[in-house]
Every structure is written in C-alpha cells, then in structure tokens.
Design a protein around this nucleic acid. Structure first.
Lengths: 207, 207, 207, 207
DNA sequence: AATGAATGAGAGTTCATTCAT
DNA sequence: TATGAATGAACTCTCATTCAT
C-alpha cells in the first residue's frame, strides 16, 4: 500500500529488478554512465528499452541502485573482518583478499561505484559517502590496533594509511581485471608484503 | 607535419589550438567525455560552439589531443629522471614528486588520459599505450637498478612493482586533489617511505 | 444493445463502468484529455491501469462516454423545461438555473464535453452535436414563444439569442466554479435580469 | 554578452522567433497544448523539429510566449479605450469590437491564452493573471463611469458585470470563429444591444 | 578567424495498449 | 474480474556537426 513501486513483495518482480541492476552494472562498467544508453542496458537484459522503466524510474535511479549494490556487500564484508578476533596481520590480509576478490569476481558494480557515483544527485551521493566512510574508518581502526599491538610503527598516520591502502587496492584491482592471467592469491601476497615491509632490502643491524 | 589544419605554421593558430586543448581538458576532467558538450568547451574558451571545429575535426579528436598532451610531457619528465645520474632513492622520489605535482598542478589532461582514453578509437589508444608502456618500462628499469645496487630486495618482481607504484600514485593523486589542504611535500615523503619501508615496525635484530 | 462488453446485463459491471466514467470525467476535467493518463483515471477509481480496459476499449472511448454522459442528462433537463407549461420568464430562469447548478454540482462531465469533445473522431462528435443542437433548438423555441407572447421584442434573432445565452451560461458557469463563495441563487437572478433587461437605466417615457 | 539567448538584438533572429510564436499559437489553438507536438509546430513553420529549440528552450516556454503575445496587445488596446475621451456607450462598443475583431483576425494566441494557460508553471501564470486583471479592472472602471453618468442603472454590480461581459465576449468570439459567415459588424451591434437593453420588449409606461 | 543558423540522429522518458494468468 | 508485465510508438529534448557568410 505504501510503496510506489509495483508490488515490492513480489518475488518475480524483485528477481527481475535484481537482473536489471546487474545488467546496468555491466553496461555502466564497460561504457561509463553517460556513454551507456538505456537501450544498451535493456538489450543486455534481454528486454525492450521501454520495459526498463518498469524497474527503474530513470537512468539515474539505475545508477544509484548499482552503486548501492556495489558497495553494500563490500562494506558488510569489511565489518565482519573488523569485528573478528584475528591478529592485525590476518585482518590486513583478509581486507586485501576481500577487495581484490570482489574486483575479480563481481567487480562491475563496485567499479561503477568508484568511477561514476559523482553523476548521482548530491543526496544519494551522501548516502554512499556514509558507507564509504564507514569502510575507511573500520580499516583505520584495524591500523590503530596494529600500532597498539606493536605490529606497526608508532609514527604511522592511520588516516592516511587507510586512504592509501584503499586507493592501492583499487589500483591493484584494475590491474588484475586488466590482466586476467595474474594469479589472484599470489598478487594478494605481494600486496600485503609491500604494505607491511616495503620494497627495501632489510639491513640486518648489529648492536 | 599533419598540415590539414588551415595555416599550420601560423603561430596564432597554434596558440589558439593549445588553448582549445586546455579548455577541453578542463571540461572533460570535470564532466567526463560523454558528459561534456562541445558547447561547454567552447564557452570555457570564450568562443562559440561552431568555432571549435576550426581547431578540431571532431569532439573525439579533441579527446585524443587532450590525452596525448596529458601524457606526453609526463613521459618526457620520466625519461629525464630515468637517464639522470642519481642514486635509486632519489629517482624514486623524483618520480613520485613528478606524478603528484602533476596531479595537483595541471592534472586535468592527465586525469582525462587516465579516465577517458577508453573512448578513443583503437588506433589512437594504441599510440597512447605505447607512451604509457614506455613510462612503465622506465620505472621498471629504475627498480632493476635499485635491485642491482642492493637498495631493493633481490626477490622483487620489478614489473609488478612498477605497475603497483603507478597505480598507487594515481590513487594518491586523487586524494590530494580531493583534499586540497594536504601538504604536497609531506605527502610525497610519506608515500616514498611507505614504498620503501612499509608500515611495519622495524625490529632491530642483534647478532 | 451494444453487447460487446462482457456480461452486459450484469448489474455489477454496469455499476463499475459508471464509476469508471465518473473517474474519467474527473480526471479529464482536471488535466484535459491529452494531459490525463489512463493510469491517473485508474488510480482515481482505485484499480490498476490495465484493468481500465475491461471497461473501455480505449482512452478515446472513455472520452466519448464522458461527453455523452455529460450532455445527456443536461439535455433531458432542458426537454422537460421546454415541454412544461410555464410562462416564458419561468422557462428562462429554469434554464439558467439548470445550467449553473449543473456547473456547480457535477460540472465535470459537462466541462469535459465543452472543452475536450474536439478530440473525438468525427463520427462520435456528430452524435454529440445532434444532442447539442437539440438543446439549442429547444431554447430557441422558448425564445420564439417569448416573442409571440410579447415578452420579448419582435426584432429578436432567436437563433443568435439561443447561442448567446448558452455561451453566456458557460462563461458564468466558469465564474461560479472559479469563485466558490459566489451565491448561486443570487447569480442566477443577476444573469436572468441581465438577459431580460440589460444594464441600461430604464428611462420612464411619458406620453 | 549578457543575454543567454543567441544575439537577441539580431533582427533576423527576432523575426524568426516571432514566426515560431505564431506557428505555436496556430498549432496549440487547433490541438491544445498536450495534443500538439513540437514536430507539428516545426512543420507548420517549415523547419525541422530540433531547430525549434534554437528559438525556445522548451515546449512550455513556447506556450508562455504565445500566451503573453496573445494577451499583451489585447490589453494595450483596452487601455487605449479606457483612457480615451468617449462617452460610455462608445467605450462599451469599442471594447466589444476590439474583442470580437481580435478573435476573428488573430484569435489564435488569445484562444490559447484562454484555454491552455493553466498548463504554465505558477510563476508565469501569475504574470499573465496580472495582465488579465488589469483588463478586467479597466472594464470595471468603464462601467463605473457608466453608472455615474446615469447611462447604467445605479444598482449594477460592476465587478460582476465586467466578468460577465468578458465571458460573454469569449463565448461570442467562439461563435464567430465557428461560423465564418456571420457578419462581424452586425454581431457587434447585437451584442452591444443585448448588454445594454436585454431581450425584453420595452414597455412604454405612461404616467 | 569566427559565427549564426540549421540539421538529424539519437537520447531518456511516457504511455496507451495487450495479454497470459 | 482484475492484474503484473511487457511492449512499441511517440514524445520532448540534446548535441555533434555542417556551412554560408
């Protein structure tokens, strides 16, 4: 009675809408928001252009749904890592694993979130920003734990570190998408190692 | 060299064309290739829409010119770093400085190259790819030197390392654009430090 | 009579269809034929868009029914006035009363008839025109009686007079709809007075 | 430099735009705002659909311009009648003449104003309402003079009278548009006569 | 060297209509 | 009797592009 969308409890409708979101994610990821047409999306989904509007009020709403879908699960995953009872280094690796796996496996919606969310109206962007901030803050918390436990240097700027790691993971994500032959597990190892130890040769210091 | 344009030797023409490229860079950076209109570009430049076509054959050509302009200088800079006679660590820092400075100071064309070049036809994209590869290879070379000199660990995968650093610099570039209060020099320091030493506490090992 | 519709004798069906006509009248009156959507009508009636087509073959048929409904009762009323056995002045006042009352009380279908019937196909418009002409002719007849009885000037062009009175009543109808505080009875008095006596000061002529 | 519209001082542009307004008036008058398409208007004007947008920002702006054009000259005419130095009866006749002539000669924009202005946004409607009110008030003033001079009955409700006359003129206007053979001058005479004297036989009262 | 004017292709969106259920 | 789902045509509007001047 209250929702405007047609019979929101209807399973069939929900299922089809989910398909529509996935199609939109795919097309937006490939061509960008402005470069993609609603016809492209409909065709990808196997329906006619006009029928898309049974599931979305507008192209922009489709973008909004894709972005939300892209980041939501992702943030949930991070939450479960953050609250878990692992030592710092495991949490870091779990984060990187989650991030890169997500890129490789259903990266489209997340990529759209990262690249195209600026075309959303201010209001929706604010909602997404909250989710993104939550993600960053949780990662920040993990770094703070790491400092406390002595695993990380005391001088570390945890805010900057969290931002940097997110950015790096996105960059690595692009690489593994671009080069499908890269071994995922191997890459995760390397990335974690880089973040923890850097590239420099360890000098053994005698005292 | 490609004297299709009217009075190609004319200085005034070349100057105006350069202005047009800069305007296009600015507008493409702000709105994306498809989101920007030729009218936007013309207005930014202070001429009328139709007059743009005196400088570009098409909107796509404008994008091509912006991308080339964006990456060219950038690669030249890297070349001069690579062939210079500094120790490894200076070269690394010079690279990061060049990258981040470029983002903060006239990042627009470079940003367009990074984000919008996929809308170029295959042919032009190939040209740009060559330039990008050259950049990466030079950076790779720097890392190889670093390994040889003992500054970097012998186990380092220099190809991956170069890709990673480029991606990281782009991510950091986004951050410093997003947060204009960040101190540029300070950030450069932190980034170099992270790449070299990682976040981990250095354990002093006695022997 | 035109038993294309399912179960034409069914009382429930007829009742629902009448509701549909009233809803259509309401929506057409508010938004105009082209400005109103079948969804608007269905919502006003409390059913779903597609279900309207159980009652109407097309949106146009709905318009046709509304127009017919709007003018039919109206003409019937005029007929009963015309054949009644009152003096001319009572008939005139009864006509105006009927017209203005109709506007104030359930003017929607009549308003639709007046404003939107031109969107009907020629054929249906002809039917309505017949009804309208009948109305006008009956009014014309009343005026002719008035002339014969000496109540009206012998020089009166009864055809023009009937047209004029209908137009004036429509105009007054709009006014009383627009200004809901206007007293209906008072307005009827003024209108009748204007038609009979005009605005001019009566000069008493001595002989 | 300041105006957004292309070179508003340019004569050619202004002339073409005027043509566009006239075309829009014609098409809106025939089919109503929602029933008319921009293609219809463009075709009527002899240009292509998209080119219309060189002269109007939107279909709605076109409607606004038509309505303004429709009522503006009309109100000006009334003003010149109101301030003129004629006796009451001449002013009344001049008003009716102006109204009916306008309907017959370039009735389209005025008709559009009367029938379709409700589709304008509140803001523009307010502007038009001012003009309409001015017209009515001037007519009201004419009636008040008539009462003062003794030409009209002292009991006359001048506000209602002005509204009524406007409504009646619109109704008559529709009639003369519908019946092109009607003699314009003759009709004007009859209408004036009706308003002043009514339909009733004048009884000569002896005293 | 630059512009005003026009175009045509294609975009997003709406909506009357159909039909299986 | 009524609906959810889909369609396709038409609509308003945008925009890259052209060209005479």
């Amino acid at each position: 009675m209250k929702p405007v969308a047609p019979s929101p409890d209807n399973d069939r409708y929900q299922h089809q809408r989910q398909q529509a979101i996935r199609s939109a994610a795919s097309v937006f990821a490939a061509k960008g928001f402005h470069g993609a047409s609603t016809k492209d999306i409909a065709e990808h989904m196997g329906i006619k252009q006009g029928s898309l509007y049974y599931y979305f009020k507008s192209k922009e709403e489709a973008l909004g749904e894709v972005c939300r879908y892209g980041i939501e699960e992702y943030v949930e995953h991070m939450t479960s890592i953050a609250v878990s009872d692992q030592p710092f280094e495991s949490k870091l690796m779990a984060t990187i694993t989650s991030h890169l796996t997500s890129y490789r496996e259903r990266n489209e919606a997340l990529k759209v979130h990262n690249d195209e969310r600026l075309y959303l109206p201010e209001e929706k962007r604010a909602t997404l920003k909250l989710l993104g901030s939550k993600y960053r803050q949780q990662l920040e918390g993990i770094f703070e734990e790491g400092v406390k436990s002595g695993a990380l240097r005391g001088s570390l700027d945890c805010h900057f570190a969290a931002q940097a790691v997110i950015g790096m993971c996105n960059a690595w994500g692009d690489i593994i998408v671009r080069e499908p032959d890269l071994d995922l597990f191997d890459t995760i190892q390397k990335c974690t190692d880089l973040i923890l130890n850097g590239f420099r040769e360890r000098r053994i210091v005698k005292r």
